[in-house]
Nucleic acid binder design. Structure first.
Lengths: 337, 337
DNA sequence: GTGAAAGCGCTAACAG
DNA sequence: CTGTTAGCGCTTTCAC
């Protein structure tokens, strides 16, 4: 480990000067600058990020809280977030809360403001109070990909119009002539996917159709749960010609269930999801879905977080991503006549 | 941000004492201890991790270098690694090199030894020289899930017997009666998957069968490339009854290709992969594969890294994971007679 | 047992 | 332009 003062000694200057050279502060004579640079090169000096952060009064990283990076949706977000963080000279710490509030709190307590300057929150099962508390301690918090709220949000957030995403899915299915549609919602009734379902419902109502509540299953946001939910739905209501899933994972499970029932997607039953994760286009048939701008949401999240860190803006800001968009692939088709 | 000395002042002691209390150093009188604890509680004090690391002369995190966390294999590894790191009081920084050596080097230069005490290397397209250099600067490096080498490794590593994994896959296919087998290898001929292919080849040779080299395609390690490779193979050699893929991603692609050719897996063509990623059991049909102990490899990697950090052991150590194991699912079946 | 003091490696005024 | 002086918040001898 070679330090600043070692470089300084070799270059015959003081560490302050070396620091100035390295930080491009100007105000250093060309000859000394060159000498310093030579010494840096010779010694292979690299700044000590931890020390620098401490001296600068900031933390060296940003944190991303997710319930589990193994959920196929998060890596895509994390990748984009890391890139954006790097572009701003920051490193990203990924914190898996495992959906456990205690773990999440422990993370917040330990790193917010000390190891991380700010925290990105991706569904991590943390209470607003906990988040507000860490915010008050000086570590800004940004809610990533939250539902676009009616009222001003309680915390800074990047909002996605999931309600509209649900509506888009419903409209697509209806445009194909589907009337008997089953809904597989990947959360509790009032959970995280509720707005998507509401959007779906609203679109159907707007079209003068009613979706019977018994044609809906509230399940976990997994392939397996989507499988089970669809299985139950299709067994109870064989007349269903389409499945609306509130997320791609359950949608993929729905396709499996339909296949296991000896039916064909999309000839017998159409399936649509929401998000457009990587696997949506890799499945057979490729999944029709409503794409949500994941990467740009990640970038926006980082940018909002950094602006909060720098200006410590007190008012909760909200930024809305571009609108969800239909990605028509092979899992939806006109209803059989 | 409340600091140690603020706590000290409130408790009517000095910061050294507070530190002693917090670090459970003993040697503090019970009454003072209680007073300090009360002050900590009252002020909501939390140690400043960055400052602590600097004072202790260590870095506050560990780093994991991967080419891209969006590759479906890595999140599972990263999750396990993060858990293991947490269990040892460390935080994990995920570094996406995007397969670019320059990016990887930049990461090493910046964080190794300054922000991270050590680095886990998961296929990140970094040269051994670069890694040795960072090791010499005092930041231990561990190669994760490397091929089990014949010679002692140049760097500490967690080795997996991928050669055996390939052999297991071959034996399984042969046991089902397959003789006409196509191989789709997810790397260059001498690339990262070479040992798996060698293992496959060796097992076939041992069984007195020869695998014609023209029945092999070297492709990228992706679903799409596996699709293309299988497509080409099957069009050229319709007599093939099975596909050996060196990884699950190309294996999944192989299944898609077979389906698009109007054939059935496994009735017409069997498919086997290696790794057992999450999606292997979710595909339709579920993929038969040779499971590699990902999670335990991650734990072993963290443990080896930490032991290197603590004892700075100079000799490259190698630890071998448990053996790969066949996971028989629905994508393989006896050859049609 | 507790306090005083030095220092981790760096940055940021301020002097000269 | 360059050096001096203070810290950042914490840990760690070493006295008392």
């Amino acid at each position: 480990m070679t330090t600043l003062s070692e470089v300084a000694r070799l270059a015959g200057v003081t560490s302050a000067t070396v620091s100035n050279v390295l930080r491009q502060r100007g105000k250093v004579g060309e000859p000394t600058r060159l000498r310093v640079l030579a010494a840096v090169e010779q010694l292979g000096y690299r700044p000590h990020l931890t020390a620098r952060a401490l001296a600068e009064g900031r933390a060296p990283t940003l944190a991303l809280m997710v319930s589990s990076i193994a959920n196929p949706f998060y890596p895509e977000f994390a990748l984009a977030a890391e890139r954006a963080a790097r572009a701003h000279g920051r490193f990203l710490i990924v914190c898996n809360t495992n959906d456990d509030p205690a773990t999440g709190r422990a993370y917040l307590d330990q790193i917010a403001g000390t190891l991380s300057d700010g925290v990105l929150i991706m569904n991590a099962n943390l209470s607003i109070e906990d988040l507000k508390k860490t915010e008050q301690r000086g570590a800004p918090v940004v809610l990533c990909m939250w539902e676009k709220p009616d009222a001003p949000p309680e915390l800074p957030c990047i909002a996605v119009d999931f309600h509209e995403a649900g509506a888009i899915a419903a409209r697509h299915l209806m445009a194909l002539g589907h009337r008997q549609i089953g809904a597989v919602v990947g959360s509790k009734k009032d959970g995280i996917h509720a707005p998507r379902y509401q959007g779906y419902l609203a679109a159907r109502t707007d079209a003068g159709q009613k979706h019977p509540h018994y044609c809906t299953r509230f399940v976990d946001d997994t392939v397996e749960a989507g499988y089970d939910g669809t299985m139950a739905l299709l067994k109870a209501y064989p007349q269903l010609t389409a499945i609306f899933a509130s997320n791609d994972l359950p949608a993929l499970g729905a396709m499996n269930a339909i296949a296991d029932l000896g039916l064909q997607v999309p000839q017998d039953v159409s399936v649509i999801g929401i998000t457009d994760i990587q696997w949506a286009r890799l499945s057979r048939p490729a999944l029709t879905t409503v794409a949500v701008p994941t990467a740009s949401a990640a970038e926006m999240s980082i940018e909002l977080l950094l602006s909060l860190i720098h200006r410590s803006s007190p008012t909760p800001t909200m930024r809305v991503t571009a609108n969800p968009q239909l990605v028509q692939r092979a899992s939806t088709a006109p209803v059989k006549t």
